[in-house]
Protein backbone atom coordinates (compact mmCIF):
# COMPACT_ATOMS: atom_id res chain seq x y z
CA UNK A 1 0.00 0.00 0.00
CA UNK A 2 1.43 3.43 -0.86
CA UNK A 3 1.81 6.14 1.76
CA UNK A 4 -1.13 8.19 0.46
CA UNK A 5 -3.60 5.31 0.84
CA UNK A 6 -2.03 4.17 4.12
CA UNK A 7 -2.44 7.71 5.48
CA UNK A 8 -6.10 7.91 4.38
CA UNK A 9 -6.80 4.54 5.98
CA UNK A 10 -5.26 5.69 9.29
CA UNK A 11 -7.22 8.98 9.25
CA UNK A 12 -10.42 6.92 8.95
CA UNK A 13 -9.19 4.54 11.69
CA UNK A 14 -8.25 7.38 14.09
CA UNK A 15 -11.48 9.33 13.51
CA UNK A 16 -13.77 6.26 13.63
CA UNK A 17 -12.18 4.73 16.76
CA UNK A 18 -12.28 8.10 18.57
CA UNK A 19 -15.87 8.90 17.54
CA UNK A 20 -17.36 5.45 18.23
CA UNK A 21 -15.20 5.02 21.38
CA UNK A 22 -16.53 8.28 22.81
CA UNK A 23 -20.08 7.29 21.90
CA UNK A 24 -19.79 3.88 23.63
CA UNK A 25 -18.28 5.52 26.74
CA UNK A 26 -21.09 8.11 26.83
CA UNK A 27 -23.77 5.38 26.56
CA UNK A 28 -22.02 3.18 29.15
CA UNK A 29 -21.45 5.97 31.68
CA UNK A 30 -25.10 7.09 31.39
CA UNK A 31 -26.25 3.55 32.29
CA UNK A 32 -24.08 3.22 35.42
CA UNK A 33 -25.76 3.32 38.82
CA UNK A 34 -25.16 6.40 40.98
CA UNK A 35 -22.19 6.08 43.30
CA UNK A 36 -23.31 5.36 46.84
CA UNK A 37 -21.29 5.02 50.03
CA UNK A 38 -23.73 2.32 51.18
CA UNK A 39 -22.49 0.02 48.39
CA UNK A 40 -19.12 1.46 47.30
CA UNK A 41 -18.14 -1.54 45.15
CA UNK A 42 -21.33 -1.44 43.09
CA UNK A 43 -20.09 1.41 40.88
CA UNK A 44 -16.62 -0.05 39.99
CA UNK A 45 -18.19 -3.50 39.47
CA UNK A 46 -20.78 -2.04 37.09
CA UNK A 47 -18.03 -0.02 35.37
CA UNK A 48 -15.81 -3.06 34.77
CA UNK A 49 -18.64 -5.34 33.67
CA UNK A 50 -20.21 -2.88 31.20
CA UNK A 51 -19.74 -4.04 27.61
CA UNK A 52 -20.30 -0.44 26.42
CA UNK A 53 -17.48 0.89 28.61
CA UNK A 54 -15.06 -1.99 27.88
CA UNK A 55 -15.78 -1.57 24.15
CA UNK A 56 -15.20 2.18 24.49
CA UNK A 57 -11.88 1.65 26.29
CA UNK A 58 -10.75 -0.87 23.62
CA UNK A 59 -11.56 1.61 20.85
CA UNK A 60 -9.84 4.51 22.67
CA UNK A 61 -6.71 2.30 23.02
CA UNK A 62 -6.87 1.59 19.27
CA UNK A 63 -7.26 5.34 18.66
CA UNK A 64 -4.14 6.12 20.73
CA UNK A 65 -2.03 3.46 18.96
CA UNK A 66 -3.22 4.54 15.49
CA UNK A 67 -2.57 8.24 16.20
CA UNK A 68 0.92 7.51 17.57
CA UNK A 69 1.61 5.42 14.43
CA UNK A 70 0.66 8.36 12.20
CA UNK A 71 3.38 10.50 13.82
CA UNK A 72 5.99 8.20 12.21
CA UNK A 73 5.09 9.51 8.73
CA UNK A 74 3.15 12.74 9.26
CA UNK A 75 3.73 16.01 11.13
CA UNK A 76 1.98 16.78 14.41
CA UNK A 77 0.60 19.97 12.78
CA UNK A 78 -0.93 17.77 10.03
CA UNK A 79 -2.27 14.94 12.22
CA UNK A 80 -4.00 17.08 14.88
CA UNK A 81 -6.19 19.27 12.61
CA UNK A 82 -7.00 16.45 10.15
CA UNK A 83 -8.09 14.02 12.87
CA UNK A 84 -10.16 16.81 14.49
CA UNK A 85 -12.88 15.71 12.05
CA UNK A 86 -13.76 13.35 14.95
CA UNK A 87 -15.52 16.39 16.53
CA UNK A 88 -17.75 16.62 13.43
CA UNK A 89 -18.78 12.95 13.54
CA UNK A 90 -19.25 13.12 17.33
CA UNK A 91 -21.78 15.96 16.83
CA UNK A 92 -23.54 14.02 14.03
CA UNK A 93 -23.63 10.74 16.00
CA UNK A 94 -24.74 12.59 19.14
CA UNK A 95 -27.68 13.94 17.12
CA UNK A 96 -28.55 10.64 15.39
CA UNK A 97 -27.88 8.07 18.15
CA UNK A 98 -28.20 9.95 21.44
CA UNK A 99 -30.84 12.39 20.06
CA UNK A 100 -28.87 15.31 21.53
CA UNK A 101 -29.93 18.79 20.50
CA UNK A 102 -27.41 20.36 18.10
CA UNK A 103 -27.89 24.14 18.01
CA UNK A 104 -27.28 26.20 14.83
CA UNK A 105 -24.12 27.56 16.51
CA UNK A 106 -22.78 24.01 16.90
CA UNK A 107 -23.45 23.31 13.21
CA UNK A 108 -21.47 26.50 12.38
CA UNK A 109 -18.67 25.01 14.51
CA UNK A 110 -18.87 21.77 12.49
CA UNK A 111 -18.56 23.73 9.21
CA UNK A 112 -15.59 25.76 10.52
CA UNK A 113 -13.76 22.60 11.66
CA UNK A 114 -14.43 21.05 8.23
CA UNK A 115 -12.81 24.08 6.54
CA UNK A 116 -9.77 23.75 8.84
CA UNK A 117 -9.48 20.02 8.07
CA UNK A 118 -9.71 20.66 4.30
CA UNK A 119 -7.04 23.39 4.43
CA UNK A 120 -4.52 21.19 6.27
CA UNK A 121 -5.36 18.00 4.34
CA UNK A 122 -3.96 19.70 1.21
CA UNK A 123 -0.50 20.23 2.78
CA UNK A 124 2.40 17.71 2.53
CA UNK A 125 2.41 14.96 5.19
CA UNK A 126 5.90 15.67 6.42
CA UNK A 127 7.77 18.97 6.28
CA UNK A 128 10.46 18.55 8.89
CA UNK A 129 13.31 20.91 8.22
CA UNK A 130 16.67 19.14 8.10
CA UNK A 131 19.74 21.05 9.39
CA UNK A 132 21.58 20.34 6.07
CA UNK A 133 18.93 22.18 4.02
CA UNK A 134 19.73 25.54 5.57
CA UNK A 135 16.31 25.86 7.15
CA UNK A 136 14.34 24.94 4.01
CA UNK A 137 11.95 21.95 4.22
Amino acid sequence: MDLKHQNRLFIVLVVASNTVGNLLLAIGLARLPDFSLDAPLRYPEAFLSSGWILGGIALMTLWMLAQLSMYTWADLTYVLPVTASAYIFTAILGRLVLHEAVSPLRWVGVVIISLGVLLVAETPLQTQISPESGGQP
Binding site: L105, G109, V110, I112, G116
Partner: peptide, 26 residues
Protein backbone atom coordinates in the same frame (compact mmCIF):
# COMPACT_ATOMS: atom_id res chain seq x y z
CA UNK B 1 10.57 21.61 18.98
CA UNK B 2 9.81 19.36 15.98
CA UNK B 3 11.32 21.50 13.19
CA UNK B 4 8.03 21.38 11.27
CA UNK B 5 7.42 23.89 8.49
CA UNK B 6 4.24 25.50 9.79
CA UNK B 7 2.86 27.20 6.68
CA UNK B 8 -0.09 29.64 6.67
CA UNK B 9 -2.38 26.74 5.71
CA UNK B 10 -1.37 24.79 8.81
CA UNK B 11 -1.85 27.91 10.99
CA UNK B 12 -5.22 28.70 9.43
CA UNK B 13 -6.30 25.05 9.82
CA UNK B 14 -5.33 24.96 13.50
CA UNK B 15 -7.09 28.28 14.24
CA UNK B 16 -10.27 27.23 12.36
CA UNK B 17 -10.34 23.86 14.18
CA UNK B 18 -9.84 25.59 17.57
CA UNK B 19 -12.60 28.12 16.76
CA UNK B 20 -14.91 25.30 15.67
CA UNK B 21 -14.28 23.38 18.92
CA UNK B 22 -15.18 26.51 20.90
CA UNK B 23 -18.45 26.93 18.93
CA UNK B 24 -19.36 23.24 19.30
CA UNK B 25 -18.99 23.47 23.09
CA UNK B 26 -21.22 26.55 23.46
Amino acid sequence: YLDEDVTWRRWAGAILVAAGIVLISL
